[in-house]
């Protein structure tokens, strides 16, 4: 068993610890009924038990965590997409939702996915038009649009 295969169990343990510590100011019991901390503590205990059982099972070989890591190129592409998504979210209040999604789709297609520019721009126009007509025009959802589009 490789160390990296412990990540799921370790994540659960960390989360359980975080919950036990994060709820420390709250009541475990409140009059006749469990308090705000009761359920979190039960969950933390259950999660710890399941995580330890998983580790034990992995160690003894009953249970396998099948890792599926990408190639370098794949990882780069996923990383670039996540960065583009973060930029998209950050830009929405500043530039507006529809323009940011359009920029996102265009950049993804052209730079990350290496598609032909003309087709990419056409796809971008279709997506932006769809969002504009369905969400803005038809459903009148107030999408952020500091510049009016």
């Amino acid at each position: 068993m490789r160390l990296v295969e412990c990540v799921p169990a370790a994540f659960m343990l960390v989360l359980a610890c975080g919950i036990a510590i994060g709820t420390s100011g709250l009541n475990l019991w409140d009059g006749p009924t469990p308090g705000a901390r009761f359920f979190p503590i039960i969950l933390a205990i259950a999660a710890t038990a399941v995580a330890l059982a998983l580790l034990f099972a992995q160690w003894r070989g009953f249970e396998k965590v099948e890792l599926d890591f990408p190639t370098r190129l794949g990882a780069a592409r996923v990383g670039a997409t996540i960065l583009a998504l973060i930029a998209l979210a950050a830009g929405i209040p500043l530039v507006g939702f529809v323009p940011m999604v359009a920029a996102f789709v265009a950049l993804m297609l052209i730079l990350v996915l290496r598609q032909r520019i003309a087709i990419s721009l056409m796809a971008t126009a279709i997506v932006a038009g769809f969002i504009h007509f369905v969400f803005v025009r038809w459903l009148s959802v107030p999408l952020p649009m500091p510049f009016g589009i």
Binding site: L85, F104, M108, L109, A123, I126, V127, F135, L139
Partner: peptide
């Protein structure tokens, strides 16, 4: 072509 469109439209849907 579907991938970026799914990402964009899903986020608009979540916001809406």
């Amino acid at each position: 072509y579907l991938a970026p469109a799914i990402l964009g439209v899903s986020l608009v849907g979540a916001y809406a």
